[in-house]
Amino acid sequence: MRALAEFIMRGRMQAIVVMAGAAALPMLFWLSAAAGSLVLLRRGLDDTLGVLVWAVLPALAWWYFGDPRTLLVLLGAFGLALLLRSQNAWPRVMLCSVGVGLLYAVALSVAFGEPIAAVAAELQKMLPNILSQAYQQLSLEERTQLEALLIPVLTGLLAALLQIVTLLSLMLGRYWQALLYNPGGFGLEFRALRFPPALAMLLLAGMLFSPSLNVQLAMLGPLCSVPLVFAGAALLHGLVSQGRMRRFWLVGLYVTLVLFMQVIYPLLVVMAIVDSLFDFRGRASPNDAGPANGEG
């Protein structure tokens, strides 16, 4: 990882090779976004635009052939990296990622509208078996409302996956920046991630009440959950760093997150909300590592 980061920062041509090459290859768009984030975070907007253009070209080609993910993640990570460079505040970046995810949802509904509708139709047929007796107890109007939520929720879930990939790409770029210029800085930043109670409640309200406001707003539910999941993971990392939990819990978290996501994912959301109220990590202790950008 360090060797790749050093190669990217060696010069303009090296950065173009990694960003454009990763954007052109299938399933490596996250690497292109991470490399672009690194260059932007370290060198600023003016020095990055000329590099970004070469990564956008293959991303546009992918969109032309029906896959918008490369361009969406690349531009999304670029925008969030610009915000992180100017504000140096992860809670604000996480909150803005909801807006980025909403733009993803709109783009995905245009690009993949028919496949999403087909999956929703299949799920609609399976609802009586999935919900069993609970489905039979619903009125005709409630069944209609439930079925109308399928397409927005599926679109929101797909957009939330891209939102997660975007944030992970940005974090990888930030980690590379800290690795090269201020080792340990990214870990301190991530472990300090915590939402104030008002913001945590706002995200929770978006998760729970957006479907009741408007059917199309149901896609906000998955998008609002993503920042809280990252904050929940940051809480566990912080407690382990303070010695209040053993490192084994982190291994267990990521293993069970893969195997039992439907259980661990909402648990992380709950942990983030409770931590916003009680601040289990306490005030950050003074340290000498400074910001991850190595410039503070």
Results as ranks from 00 to 15, higher is better:
L172R: 13
L172Y: 05
G173V: 10
R174G: 15
Y175R: 15
Q177S: 13
A178L: 09
L180I: 04
L180C: 02
L180F: 07
Y181I: 09
P183M: 06
F186T: 09
L188P: 01
L193K: 05
R194K: 14
R194D: 02
R194L: 07
R194T: 04
P196L: 14
L199E: 14
A200E: 03
L202T: 13
L203G: 01
L203P: 02
L204S: 08
L204H: 01
G206K: 05
M207Y: 11
L208C: 05
L208D: 06
L208F: 08
S210E: 01
S212I: 13
S212V: 13
N214F: 12
V215F: 11
V215R: 10
L217K: 05
A218T: 03
A218L: 01
A218M: 06
M219N: 09
M219D: 07
G221A: 15
P222R: 00
P222T: 02
P222M: 02
C224K: 00
S225A: 15
S225F: 00
V226E: 03
V226Y: 02
L228V: 03
F230K: 01
A231Q: 07
A231L: 04
A233K: 09
L235K: 04
H237Y: 06
H237V: 04
H237Q: 08
G238V: 08
G238I: 06
G238T: 06
G238C: 08
L239R: 07
Q242C: 02
R244M: 02
R244L: 09
R244D: 01
R246A: 15
R246F: 08
W249G: 06
